[in-house]
Design a protein around this nucleic acid. Structure first.
Lengths: 116, 116
DNA sequence: CCGTATCCTACCTGATACTG
DNA sequence: CAGTATCAGGTAGGATACGG
């Protein structure tokens, strides 16, 4: 029996790869970083820190490394002084944010209702 | 400047109610509980424990209380012995899962690609 | 059957300092 | 500018035992 009829039987069972990806995508800062990149425009480290308001340097680094390893975010470092590094979505990452943004939009529209 | 052009300016800024709701919805077990209820059929505590494979009793209780307080999940206790309690989605919760399920479906379809 | 209470650990956070 | 390193403190989450 799967968790819900919408998914294949083995999806989101314990130890399933889907569970790992779900945890990555749903981690505290991933949605904010992914949403910030959703416009398609590459962003620099400092700009990402401003957009994901409240993120520590440690957690931003950790989140970006994770998303890069997952093939969702691309890191492009230009070898200049001072360093210039840009982050953008991979095609895979774009597919993800196309589903993520509607969810976040819904939350933005209904947050008041939810917290009274 | 908002986090991304898709959202209103104040959305997902630090301390904004949207941030609280985002954290609730993206918490470790919420997606699995909400997805389990997405079929529309009310589920009992023991069935939810089976569907959200790996969840501890403490975290299931905490997650359900949170979702109930947020007005996303409805708790219906029938006063019988032994106790019979059912959980289901509120209309608000249904609106949420309509956006959540496509995201989780995408993850189920692309998890292999992501983890190589 | 449906939870609560307790304890314990792991991670997140925040601050600070430092490097190419 | 774009990070890494380290350490102290708090909080989310896990394991287990017990109660209505």
């Amino acid at each position: 029996m799967s968790i819900a009829s919408a998914f294949p039987d083995q999806a989101f069972t314990q130890g399933c790869p889907t569970r790992v990806v779900l945890d990555h995508v749903m981690s505290k800062w991933s949605p904010l970083v992914l949403a910030a990149l959703s416009d398609g425009e590459p962003l620099r480290w400092s700009e990402l820190r401003r957009r994901a308001e409240g993120v520590s340097e440690k957690m931003l680094a950790q989140t970006l490394r994770m998303l890069e390893q997952d093939g969702l975010v691309l890191r492009h470092a230009r070898p200049v002084v001072p360093p210039h590094v840009e982050y953008s979505l991979t095609p895979l990452g774009q597919g993800l944010v196309e589903r993520l943004v509607p969810l976040m939009t819904w939350i933005a529209e209904h947050a008041d209702q939810i917290l009274e």
